[in-house]
Design a protein around this nucleic acid. Structure first.
Lengths: 351, 351
DNA sequence: CTGAAAGCGCTAACAC
DNA sequence: GTGTTAGCGCTTTCAG
């Protein structure tokens, strides 16, 4: 392995000078810098991150602790986080907990051992242990997208309550009164806030609710399909479903179609997130759009600021940044209930 | 920060003993081990990965260099890779190049500086520079899913040629003769191999081909939509399209529907990968299924073996593991060309 | 089985 | 501007 000493020797300077060159410190005479860089190129010298961080106590490493990368909402966010951390010279450690608290703890330990500079947390733990453990170790933390029941860390998310409210409001305006709500995992703040908005809309409109219309879908396909099947084969099945995320909404559509129900004529479906596939015409999902990319960028920017600036206000007073959402009306929400059935969707429209 | 010395002092042993305990070396007397572990818990000691790897020269870090995490085929694979690396005590550095060679080079440099133990490479560079640079540095490398034109590294992939052959064969058997092929990015081995299989099928069946039926879709939605629009508005538009991946196939469906074409009656569509959404009933995409999870697991296992075992045969004779694929017939490929139009898909079947 | 000393590759602090 | 010295936290010899 080529070390800084080898470079120094060959360039006829001290190791410190090489270090100064590598770190772009402007104290080196141009001629010297040039010579050193030449030797670096020749020897293909690459500084050891381990050695460097042992002394600087900064690893240039960011962790991303997330619940489930298979949720199609994530890749967009991962890309944004990756690209921004990379631009700033940091590398990204991906920690996919699979919603397993044991895995999460293991990841937290590894992140501490790696002495990462900061962690973006978007995992499930309703108790929020990870954030606490990490920040007590002096590791910067930003809660992202979801948050524990009570928390005192910086947080970037979207207006879930408002989104739930406008989705439900829209379905009510279309004349629906039997609307089911598809929950995510228990304890998930996103699901609970979306449900809160949903409930507020129904309450304000004097539409009665009962427990049977609140279903657990678990944010994933498998469980959602079971739950949807049970719901849609009931005699008093709802005329509309608002799912706490798009994955579940699409699972509901899937089940409905297989049961011979037409979407939206027999069942209106609304989701949340606006994942990429939602806008494709075979799906055409009406959904609450959250700007996943912007949210990810905001969170990353905030984290990097916290890492770099020890006097950042976020160190004293946790910042809570809530981004707006917007209802995207597409095909699956249909028209007014009781309207004459409109011309079917594209596949048959040319028949 | 609490160091190994603090623990040693408090436990009344030498640092070496603490080290032995931490690394589960069976040379410590149980009583001593117990006492040390107690102190570790009390002090919340976590060994510094930086310090450790400075001396052991192993970072317990794996890099994953990939072209575009937004391709829905990736999350499944990322999950498999992440879970397996994690189980083995490694962390995963995610390097999303966005198909940009400059970014790729930058990532390669960072991976070298981090002295990662190994890298799974699934990025675009047709020249395969990354793999060469890394392995010359003694970093283990496994090519994954795609590969450069010429290469001499371990490789895990699927039978793209065979998949292309059976997809095309199936469309031919249905009576199609005007079949377009949607290419991925130029130079991508997956796209080229799939095309090769497609061509072989047409050749063997004596179906003439001309350049106009080979279209660049670039593996992404935007470009694919443009290309599909151009193709489908031609007077002699094809009756079937085989896309080099599912994302492009769905983009084609999307465009077709918007143009008022029925899928599959007016246009049969076949994809490649079998991404999760492909099997949902609103999509129902006929596609060549590759077992993404198994492929990812094989690649990770091979890489970890190479990292751990300096005598692994893969160090001498590069291993090439090609996994089988299987055609998944669903809705979008339709029935025989010229057959009386069958009853439309579920949405209208109850009308 | 445990302890002492050396050193991994780098940078911070201080000389010059 | 540049060189020298010390030491980051750990593991690896090698003694005991």
């Amino acid at each position: 392995m080529v070390t800084i000493i080898d470079v120094a020797r060959k360039a006829g300077v001290s190791p410190k000078t090489v270090s100064n060159v590598v770190n772009n410190r402007p104290v080196v005479r141009p001629a010297t810098r040039e010579r050193v860089q030449e030797v670096i190129r020749e020897l293909e010298y690459r500084p050891s991150a381990a050695a460097r961080s042992l002394v600087t106590r900064t690893r240039r490493l960011i962790g991303f602790l997330l619940a489930d990368i298979k949720n199609p909402a994530y890749p967009e966010m991962v890309e944004a986080i990756a690209s921004q951390t990379h631009q700033n010279g940091f590398m990204l450690l991906l920690c996919n907990t699979g919603r397993d608290p044991v895995e999460e703890d293991h990841y937290v330990n590894l992140l501490i051992e790696q002495q990462v500079d900061g962690v973006i947390i978007s995992s499930s733990g309703a108790e929020g242990r990870a954030a606490g453990i990490l920040s007590r170790r002096g590791i910067q933390v930003v809660l992202f997208n979801r948050h524990p029941k009570v928390f005192n860390e910086n947080y970037v998310g979207v207006d879930n309550e408002g989104g739930g409210y406008s989705a439900a409001g829209y379905l009510l305006a279309l004349g629906h009164t039997r609307i089911a709500f598809f929950r995510g995992e228990p304890g998930s703040s996103t699901s609970e806030e979306r449900e809160a908005g949903f409930r507020r809309a129904l309450l304000e409109n004097g539409v009665p609710m009962d427990d049977s219309q609140f279903i657990f879908g678990d944010f994933r396909v498998g469980k959602s399909r079971e739950a949807a099947t049970a719901l849609l084969t009931r005699r008093d099945r709802p005329t509309a479903i608002f799912a706490a995320n798009d994955v579940m909404a699409i699972a509901v559509m899937d089940v409905a179609l297989r049961l011979g129900l037409r979407v939206p004529e027999d069942l209106a479906v609304v989701g949340f997130d606006d994942i990429p596939i939602a806008s494709s015409s075979p799906i055409g999902l009406t959904t609450v759009r959250s700007d996943l990319r912007t949210m990810a960028e905001e969170a990353t920017r905030l984290l990097l600021e916290l890492v770099r600036d020890p006097h950042h206000p976020g160190h004293l007073n946790p910042i809570r940044k809530i981004l707006p959402v917007a209802l995207q009306i597409r095909r699956t929400s249909g028209g007014r209930v009781g309207d004459p059935v409109r011309s079917p969707p594209p596949p048959a429209s040319t028949a």
